[in-house]
């Protein structure tokens, strides 16, 4: 279980990193925290020619808050975000979800953007991005573009990020007065990838529910405020649309059941979080 040979660059700036990505003849991979990538390298599932390490790029290591968004640079670790003062007020859902992201030790090195780039269908940070309709900033040597979650997340381990591009930042919308959030996850073991993860976001007039773990990417539904019965029906429809599949950890039916049962709970929780403020 040792990685294949590859060349390595420790980029000092975003420009340097992007210059490496221009080389279309080589299979170039961006290394940030490496908590997913290096495991895959060790298993030889990923066989790059060149690894570009962006973890030491100063300009990517910042968290910036503006009126509407929290922008998290590509080298910011999950631990840094978790400890960021005011996270619970600015993006409550992230502060609810982060304790479920891996473990203390992996959060010390794993980055927020790395988790988005890896696009594991069960992981929490991509789910929050989808539920909150956040976006990512992609940059290449020739252009920079901002994609919202729905455009960015294309499938199992797959994103719209092109070979010459990298994520330079993630943007999560700041919570507004009267917004309510809740997060819940069921895994077979503490800190594992979710069997089902649910992220609810409720405002005065709408309900948004994001689900991870059933489809090949996070899925979101948005409803106007519904009656109890309508909500149950909507959740049941959502569960069946996602279908889910059987694997060694759970059945498709179990996954759907969690959508129905916990979907309701997280929405209620998010609602009451609203009224509390």
């Amino acid at each position: 279980m040792k990685p294949v040979p590859f060349d390595y660059v420790q980029a000092q700036s975003t420009e340097e990193a992007l210059a490496c990505l221009k080389d279309s003849d080589r299979n170039v991979r961006v290394l940030a925290g490496g908590q997913s990538l290096v495991a895959m390298l060790n298993l030889r599932l990923v066989r790059p020619n060149l690894l570009v390490d962006i973890s030491q790029i100063e300009s990517l290591s910042t968290i910036r808050q503006s009126k509407d968004i929290l922008e998290i640079g590509a080298a910011v670790t999950q631990a840094e975000l978790k400890q960021w003062p005011g996270l619970a007020e600015s993006v409550p859902q992230l502060s609810m979800a982060l304790p479920f992201v891996g473990h203390f030790q992996t959060r010390n090195k794993g980055t927020v953007c790395g988790s988005l780039a890896h696009a594991d269908p069960s992981s929490e940070l991509p789910l929050c991005l989808a539920a909150l309709n956040g976006s990512v900033v992609l940059q290449s040597a020739r252009r920079s573009r901002v994609l919202n979650a729905a455009e960015f997340q294309t499938g199992m381990l797959s994103t719209a990020c092109q070979p010459d591009e990298m994520i330079v930042a993630a943007r999560y919308p700041i919570s507004r007065e009267g917004d309510g959030f809740a997060f819940r996850e069921v895994a077979r073991r503490h800190g594992d990838f979710a069997i089902v993860a649910l992220a609810a976001f409720v405002t005065e007039s709408k309900i948004r529910l994001g689900i991870g773990g059933l489809a090949s990417r996070p899925s979101v539904r948005e409803w106007d405020i519904l009656s109890e019965q309508e909500l149950d029906e909507a959740l049941n429809a959502f569960a069946w649309q996602l279908k889910g599949s059987d694997d060694i950890h759970a059945t498709a039916r179990y996954r759907r059941e969690l959508v129905r049962r916990l979907g309701r709970q997280v929405i209620e929780e998010a609602k009451s979080a609203r009224t509390k403020e």
């Binding site: 069960s122 499938g155 199992m156 694997d247 060694i248 950890h249």
Partner: peptide, 10 residues
């Protein structure tokens, strides 16, 4: 194992 379904689909 967890991802084979999705990967085959891709």
């Amino acid at each position: 194992g967890r991802m084979l379904d999705g990967a085959s689909q891709v």
